[in-house]
């Protein structure tokens, strides 16, 4: 069949598969590193926004709004192409990870804040009355409860981060998309692009389904 020869050519697939796997490995590394760094940054930002001294709160809020407004592609291009003008030359991986982390951290901060604010005031008061410090209250009482609330939106955010790693191909990162476009050029056949798309879907579909399931279960428990 003509259409299979064009879009799912077995011979091209066989030849370009190793390239795609290299790209996938880099995509997964970039995604995982950015997700973890974004979580740490987000938690720190949420704490600063909720409990920091006045000026820090304002600053944090400013940061969160700015980095939720800027298009990731614009930020990435600034980091990679503009920062060298002030002497800061970052590798494609570090550029991409920085941009992804800065933005993911802003979204994660809002998710954590909402999770913490959803915990009833009585939990803070009971902790204080028992003599727990602010830090102990967070670690032992509030965050363990908030985590259950924030897991679905955090998973959602992680899906977005993995998807957005594809933008890194514009700064010459040999990620899955970049490898696929190069393989396509080499083979003069679009099969690698289709395969790359299927790989993205294969990784992210289960997570999307998981989030839907968690959200349904959460909604059921709320009732």
């Amino acid at each position: 069949m003509d259409i299979f020869d064009t879009f799912l050519n077995a011979e091209v697939m066989r030849r370009t598969f190793p390239m795609l796997m290299q790209g996938l490995w880099i995509t997964l590394q970039l995604g995982a590193a950015s997700i973890v760094a974004g979580l740490a940054l987000g938690l720190a930002l949420a704490m600063a926004r909720l409990y920091g001294p006045g000026p820090l709160r304002v600053l944090t809020r400013f940061y969160i709004d700015i980095f939720r407004s800027i298009p990731l592609l614009v930020l990435l291009i600034i980091v990679y192409y503009a920062l060298p003008f002030v002497g800061l030359r970052l590798s494609p991986f570090v550029s991409a990870m920085s941009a992804l982390t800065l933005v993911s951290g802003a979204y994660t901060a809002e998710i954590f804040r909402a999770g913490i604010e959803a915990i009833p005031k009585g939990q803070f008061e009971a902790s204080a009355a028992l003599g727990l410090s602010g830090r102990q209250t967070m670690a032992d009482v509030i965050l363990p409860q908030a985590v259950r609330i924030v897991i679905p939106p955090l998973t959602n955010n992680s899906i977005n981060v993995v998807k957005d790693t594809a933008l890194a191909s514009v700064v010459a990162m040999p990620d899955l998309l970049k490898q696929a476009t190069q393989a396509q050029a080499l083979a003069a056949n679009p099969t690698p692009l289709i395969v790359a798309a299927m790989i993205y879907i294969a990784f992210l579909w289960p997570l999307v389904a998981l989030v839907s399931r968690m959200e349904r279960r959460f909604a059921a428990r709320r009732r």
Binding site: P120, G122, Q123, E125, A126, A129, L130, L132, Q145
Partner: peptide, 25 residues
């Protein structure tokens, strides 16, 4: 202090609720 609305820690068992403050404080 004992509150009108109990304010137990829902993610901890009854025993863990009682143990938390002595352990930490």
């Amino acid at each position: 202090m004992v509150f009108q609305s109990f304010n137990l820690f829902p993610h901890l068992t009854v025993r863990q609720n009682v143990m938390l403050a002595p352990r930490r404080v």
